[in-house]
Computed example of a mutant assay.
Amino acid sequence: MTAAREWTLDGHAGRLAGRTWTGGSPSHVVLLAHGYGEHTGRYEHVAAALVDAGAVVTAVDHVGHGKSEGDRVVVADFERVVDDLHAVDEQARAQHPGLPVVLIGHSMGGLIAARYAQRHGGSLAAVVLSGPLVGEWGGAALLDLPEMPDTPLDSTTLSRDPEVGRAYEADPLVWHGPFQRPTIEAIARALLRVQDGPSLGALPLMWAHGEGDRLVPMAGSRSGVEHLRGEHYVEKIYPGAQHEIFNETNRDEVLADVVAFIRNALRR
Rank of each mutant, 00 (worst) to 15 (best):
L133G: 01
L85Q: 13
A126H: 04
G177W: 14
D257R: 00
A202D: 15
M1L: 02
P217D: 09
H12I: 06
E136C: 00
W175T: 06
A126R: 05
A92D: 08
E253C: 00
G122Y: 10
R229V: 14
A33E: 01
S159Q: 07
G109S: 11
L173Q: 09
V164N: 07
M1Y: 05
S68W: 14
V254C: 01
H227A: 14
R72E: 13
G23T: 10
A202V: 11
A49F: 05
S155F: 15
V82W: 10
V128A: 11
R222Q: 15
I237T: 10
S107I: 03
T156I: 08
L158K: 02
E185S: 09
A3I: 13
L16V: 11
R263D: 15
Q195W: 09
I187V: 15
R268G: 14
G64E: 07
V254M: 03
E211F: 08
W21C: 00
L228I: 08
Y116S: 03
G139A: 07
G220P: 05
V75T: 13
V258M: 13
A140F: 01
A76V: 12
W21R: 00
A3T: 15
V216Y: 03
L111N: 11
P204Y: 07
L173S: 08
R251G: 02
T249E: 12
Y43L: 05
E69I: 05
E211S: 07
H45P: 01
R263Q: 12
P97G: 07
R42Y: 13
A4K: 05
D171A: 04
H39T: 04
R214Q: 14
V46C: 02
R72H: 11
K236P: 00
E69H: 08
L9M: 12
L173Y: 15
G14Q: 07
V60L: 15
A17R: 13
R229T: 06
L129E: 08
H176T: 08
D144H: 06
P198M: 12
L203K: 05
H96K: 01
V127N: 01
H86Y: 14
G64Q: 08
R160A: 12
E147L: 07
R166D: 14
A17L: 03
R263G: 13
A167F: 05
D150Q: 15
E69P: 09
W207N: 11
L16S: 12
V29S: 02
S130W: 05
A47C: 03
P149Y: 11
V82F: 10
W207E: 03
G220S: 02
R214I: 02
Y36C: 01
S25W: 04
A140W: 00
L111Q: 02
S123D: 15
A125D: 02
S107M: 04
R166G: 04
W207T: 00
R222V: 07
L173G: 06
L32V: 10
G110K: 07
T58N: 04
R166L: 15
R160P: 00
H45D: 12
L266V: 08
G230N: 05
H120L: 03
R72T: 13
P217H: 04
